[in-house]
Each structure stands twice: as C-alpha cells, then as structure tokens.
Amino acid sequence: MTGRPLTVRCEDGYELRGHIWEPCSLHGQLSGRTVVVVVGATGVLASYYHRYASFLADNGFAAITFDYRGIGQSREANIRNLQASWYDWALKDIDAVLHWAIDNVSQDLHVVGHSFGGFGVGLAKHGQQVKRLLTVGAQHAHWRDYRAGHRLHYWWRWHLLMPAITLWHGYFPGKSLGWLEDLPKGVALNWARSPKDFSAGAGPMRKVVKEHQTSFTAATLAVSATDDPFASENAIRRGLKHYPNSPAIVVQLKPHDLNSPGIGHFALFHSRFQGTFWPGTLQWLRDGTNPWA
C-alpha cells in the first residue's frame, strides 16, 4: 500500500515532505476517524516507517509520516546553511504536522514516537491535543543513561567524535560514515551535549517549553527493549518526568517476548515484527489497553 505524498508548511515557512496512508474502508474520506502521526528517530528516514504506517491504515487508522527539516525528502540542497536544532524539529516541525493532521484529517489524534520523536512530541504546542501516545525507545541521549557496557563506546562516538566531525564539516556527515543520515549542525550538537535538563529549554525558550510540557496530557505507553543500549529504564523515566500531567506506563520488552533473538533500538518498526509487536500497538491506539501488562 503506497502512501499519498504530503507537504506541510511550518510556521516559519519551511516545507516538510511526508506521506499519508488512508484507511481502505474510508475510500479517501478521513473526517471523523483516528489519525496516527508517526514521529521518527534522529537521523532515520521517514521511509523506514512506511511499512508500519501502511499496517496502521490496513487496520482502520489514517497514518502520517514525515521527514524533519534537513533530513530525507525535507532536506535542502546545502545542509551546511540550515539552522536547525532539536528544538526546531519539535517546536516547528512536529508541531506543524500535528496541526495539519488535526485540521485536515481528524481531531482524534494519536502519536507513535520513536526515540527522540517520542520525547519531542511533548515539546510541540499542539502536543496538548494528542489523546494517546506510544513511545518506542524514547529518550534524549543523556549518556549516563546508556546501558552498562555501552556507555564508554557511545560516549566516544556520539559525545566526542560526532561533535568534532560536525564542527569541522559544518554538519554531521553520518551517511558517508555509515552511522545514520546526515544531520544539521544544531541537531548533532544537541545530541552530543545531551544535557540532563535539555527538555527544560534554553534561554527564552525555557518558559515556552515548560508550558508545552505541562499541558501535555496524553496517556502514554513507553516501550523499550531490554537489549536497547540507549533506552534503558532510567532513560525512559528521565524523559517522562518532564511531563507531569501525562499518565504513563513503562514497559520493558525482552527479545523472547516477541520470539526474536534481538530487538535493539531500531528493529521494532521492521516488518519482521508485523506479527508480534505491531498488533500490540493497535490495542493501545484503539482503546488504551497495555498488551504487555
């Protein structure tokens, strides 16, 4: 099932590219139905989530995917000149897509957020209209929260080597390194600094970010895998504590729970989990039932 191309214009004029999948039963008439916005991880193309979005549409949801500014189909020609940070991705990009979904599809809005996407949705103004949130490995890269045995390796890669390469090139050339997609300078440096209070905002943004976090009330199911080196239980709870009015359930899945030899940080949106993890997400999105209680 192929999604329909979508263009969303942000408040500052930047245009994001994405896709929308329409439930077959609606024949293109989307009003009155639930829409699920899939908000991706840092450095991961929206196309990675297309199979999952198609699965959601096959099960009655309208589903939207999109690339952040500077990534994939939303990338401008010269990424070195792009002023973009994690704050821009959340306050401008995620917010614009949520707003578009509410205005053009349905006010019955749910979100599936992967890694930073699961944390960033709460920074967006229109996050207050999200009714149900499913996060997968959601955290904001605080290195002390990496699982034991991984901290030194990833501290060296993401918090020492990445900022040095970024400052040299003017952006992070992740694709040529075979690590992930290229990243705008501001995003890469946000990741590298990963301050414990990142979510509290910086400078004049502090008050705005705090207001958005406080107004975020979506019921949240926060899922991660026990073999995910980034999203430890500490990492997930550190992120959730910034959303005091969002009732949250934390679930740690073991690989054998899903009949898999391994899961890690990225695999749950791969089609090999279509018969195990994906159906469970439907239970949460439809009626707020935790399938892994």
Rank of each mutant, 00 (worst) to 15 (best):
Q274F: 00
A202H: 14
R272L: 07
T2P: 12
I236K: 07
L221W: 00
V111C: 05
I165V: 13
N81C: 10
G275P: 14
T135W: 01
V187H: 10
S224T: 15
V187K: 08
G275C: 13
P255C: 13
N234Y: 06
W156R: 14
Q252C: 03
Q83A: 01
T34H: 04
V105Y: 12
K210G: 09
A222I: 03
K254N: 04
P23L: 09
N259Q: 14
R69S: 10
G70Y: 07
K131S: 10
L268N: 08
L240F: 07
T281C: 11
E76F: 09
P279S: 03
D227C: 01
T220I: 10
A62T: 02
I79T: 01
G18D: 14
Q107D: 13
G117P: 01
G178V: 02
G186W: 00
A141N: 13
W191H: 08
K125G: 13
F61I: 06
W21S: 15
R80M: 10
P255A: 14
F61V: 05
P229Y: 02
W155H: 12
E181H: 02
N245F: 08
L167T: 02
N78R: 11
G3S: 07
A138T: 10
G288V: 08
P279E: 05
S260V: 05
E181I: 01
R206P: 02
T135K: 06
S215C: 06
L134R: 05
L56D: 10
H142T: 12
K241E: 11
L56A: 13
E22G: 06
V208S: 00
I64A: 11
S31F: 15
